[in-house]
Amino acid sequence: MTMTMARLSGIRRYYWMGENVVKALDGIDLEIRKGEYLAILGRSGSGKSTLLNLLGCLDRPTEGTYILDGEDVSVLDDDELSHVRSRKIGFIFQSFNLIPQLTVLENIEVPLFYQGVPPKQAKEKAAELAEKVGLGGRFHHRPTELSGGQQQRVAIARALVNDPALLLADEATGNLDSATEKEILDLTDELHDLGMTVVLVTHNQALTSRAERVLTLADGKVVSVMTREEMDRAEEAAP
């Protein structure tokens, strides 16, 4: 068994806007270990969202290979990518992205239905996870009846319901106040401690403090990859 969860080599993602080529990602090499907590830091336009979409199999690279959990996903077609997302990826979005007409439990169940899990089993699993993230007693509320922190907990439960190989958080705390932000980050830490591979994407350096490794992106290229220790040292040196 390899210890690598994801390996990206020579990844490029270009967009053509008329005559111009936008190089959103321009040659990324990256390896994410199993159980690692990686933060991707960059300003808006640095390519971090594009990288996250690629990691999450929502998008395919123009060039390069991406091996996820031992499977080359850069050659898969749309249907196959859907199945990979369904089995291996858990997304947590900045804007929660819950489906408004569904209840808490129903929202959490969604990924299981696309896997074809029987309804009863799906319901049990969803209830178990909702309980775990602290949503006991709110199973049948709709997203609009919940606070931002509660909504994000629903989203986290939903991201975990398919036992993903990779948990991707995109500015997961961007819409939350600092107290709630801390709760969510604590929850993420907990998951990481339980062995989950976590990739957190943010433009806010403060949020990278709990990550084991921080990758900084600018203009579609990797500027630096630093471990926790190197980061701390750099911070001490900076002021």
Binding site: G56, L58, D78, D79, S82, H83, R85, S86, R87, F91, N97, L98, I99, V110, P111, Y114, Q115, R158, N162
Partner: peptide
């Protein structure tokens, strides 16, 4: 549209 995006991200295929 947003719901469609969410469902796709959570594993729905085009056919779904």
């Amino acid at each position: 549209t947003r719901e469609i995006g969410i469902r796709r991200a959570l594993g729905a295929t085009k056919k779904h």
